[in-house]
Amino acid sequence: MSITHRAPILWLTLRQFRAGRAILLVALFAATPVLFAAIFRWSSATGDATEFLSNFFLEILAPTILPLATLILATNALGNEIADRTLVYIVLKPVARGRLIVEKFIASTLVTVLAFTFGLVATWAVATGGSGSGRLLGALLAGTLAGVAAYGALFLLISLLVPRALLVGIIYVLIWESALARFIPGIKMLSVRHFAQSVFVRILDNPAIRLDRALQLSSATIVLVVLVVAALALATLRLRQMNLP
C-alpha cells in the first residue's frame, strides 16, 4: 500500500512542501552549519573540531538556527491551508482530527530533520576532515531531532492559535529561546533549547563539553516527549473547535 493510502495527509503535505519555496529556505538553514565548518577549517586547521561543533550546536544551532528553520515548515503545514482556505478539503472528511495533526507534524518534522541530517553530516565531515567520532555525529543528530520535534509541535500549535504564526514564532525564537533563555536561569529551564542541548551533551558524554544544569538523557527525553504530546493534543483540540469562515 502506497503512502497516499497509508498517510494521505502526510502525502499531501509533502507535495505542498515540494511545490512551495519554503523548503528552499529550510535547505538554506540546514546548509548554514557547513559554511561555519568550512570557515573553521580554513582559519584553524589544528583547532579542536569537537569543541567547535559542540559550541556551535549549543550556542547557535539549538537556540537560533534550528527553531527558525523548524518554524518555516511547521507554521506552513496548516497555516497556509487556513490562510488560503483549502483546509476545508481535508477537515470535511471522516478523519480524526488527531490523525490530521499528527500527519502534518510528521511531514514538517521529517523534511526538516532530513535537511539537517544532510547538512550536519556534511558539517561534521568538513569540520573533522572526515575523521571525527561517530558519537559526536550521533549527538548532533539526536540533539537536532529532539529540537526539531519539540519546536515543530510548538509552532504547529501556534499556527492554529494566531493568524501571524510566522511572526509570532520569530519573536518567540529571538526573544525567548535566543536571548532570555541564555541569560535568565529560570527561563533556561523552560526553553526547548535547554532540553535539546541536554540531549546533545549527554549523548556526547565528553567531560570537556559542559552545560549548566544539564538534565539526564532520560529526563530530557521525557520532558521533550511530554511537550510534543501536549502541544499536539492542544492542536487537535483547537482544530476540533475552530471556526473556518
Binding site: P8, I9, L12, A19, R85, Y89, K93, V95
Partner: peptide, 26 residues
C-alpha cells in the same frame, strides 16, 4: 461540500485531488 472559494491545491492534478478525497473517505 463544494465550497465557495476557487482555490484548489494547484500542484495536484484533477485526478489526484479527487482521489485524495476518495482515500480520505476510505
Amino acid at each position: 461540500l463544494v465550497p465557495e472559494q476557487e482555490v484548489v491545491y494547484p500542484f495536484l492534478t484533477g485526478r489526484e485531488f479527487v482521489r485524495l478525497n476518495a482515500i480520505l473517505q476510505r
